[in-house]
Design a binder for these strands. Sequence first.
DNA 1: CCGTATCCGGGGGGATACTG
DNA 2: CAGTATCCCCCCGGATACGG
Lengths: 232, 232
Amino acid sequence: MSQPSYNQFCPVAMAAEILGARWTIVLLRELCAGSTRFNDLRRGVPRMSPALLSKRLKELEDQGIVERRLVRRSPELYDYVLTEAGRDLGEVIMSIGIWGQRWVQSAPSLENTDPALLMWDMRRNIRTGILPARRVTVQFIYGDLGPACANWWLIHAPETGADLCSVDPGFDVDLFVRCDLKTMTAIWMGLDTVSRAQHEDRLMLVGDRDVAGAMQDWLGLSPFAAYDKHAP
Amino acid sequence: MSQPSYNQFCPVAMAAEILGARWTIVLLRELCAGSTRFNDLRRGVPRMSPALLSKRLKELEDQGIVERRLVRRSPELYDYVLTEAGRDLGEVIMSIGIWGQRWVQSAPSLENTDPALLMWDMRRNIRTGILPARRVTVQFIYGDLGPACANWWLIHAPETGADLCSVDPGFDVDLFVRCDLKTMTAIWMGLDTVSRAQHEDRLMLVGDRDVAGAMQDWLGLSPFAAYDKHAP
DNA sequence: CCGTATCCGGGGGGATACTG
DNA sequence: CAGTATCCCCCCGGATACGG
């Protein structure tokens, strides 16, 4: 991608030189979403190898899109934060996502589900103001997955915000959510709703009735969920 | 690019799957600009091999972004036009270009000049309403280039619109424009102006005073010229 | 936890030539 | 003019293992 470039003076080509590198757009999406630490970024781009992630981050730094901030010496610890140029890219990423939501077939992509990634995205968008002002634990049970990755705990606490566990934290569970991973993914993407899935017995809620009843609200959806699909 | 995909349900990743293929963004830019014929597209993406262009067009057709319309049988002749999904991508391309204009260093890209591409872009954007309602011929002379590609003729005629020649069409020339290719490229990109280049003797105009005086106006600039650079 | 080093294979795509 | 066909190289990036 580097040497044999487009060699065009057009700004579109100049930007495409950067955005065209594999994984870069997806990585930028994760950076725009707010992840700053290497391993947090990995969670958002789970199929990207750490070597490549490191390389891309360096490239983005060279291009003035990402800034590397020392958080701690020995052992060294860095934050990767967007520069102003990087934050400006947020609009580009947003318009790409809106287009994707509108026009790309969703059925095939609903096969590419990944519970870790979904939970990671969901955790970030929990609308903490809507939940009661006490610790609330929600256990998600994906019945279609093997025992190793079927159970997830989302813990909301007023002071710490939302937290995510893949092993039982031991708290009393306020709400159990049981469904297929695909159902939960579709809800997250705005293609389905909690109540519809519930009525059609694809999703079951057991526990605190208030927390259950407000799930569609405290469950912040994907940033692109609001944009309707076009063709069927 | 095709098989080992991002495998994410996120709409950004879904769209990036398409946009990430090499040359696709640049090709879409040319399609958005209005080119529909194979060889017109080639002119807008001169460094792309015809084999790859053909392949990308097929992919875009499969993805519902481009529609192939039969213009004539035997020999077969097609128009490649954007579908509604493709036209919607116009906004994405536009936002990419705006970001590029704002944030990508222009100095290196001003080394990647190409007279054929520049003239092709310029021809498309001539503001024909501003020129007098008769045939107007403007000869561009790039003093820094070899004789083979130094001379270009832009012919504006009220009925046919703007036309481009790389060989002398034989018409009387209304205006001679002499400058370096880099100067003309910078003007086209909005980084320089006709009058500034003229005052600094980097550009010389000889001929019809009215046509010369209005050059900055009839010369439609790049669609991104209006967006200012940020950093110096 | 936070990355780096190394290896290796597949295929994307550049170059060139050719045809209807 | 509008593409196909072919060849072949190179380099991207996936996997894995390892250092700080």
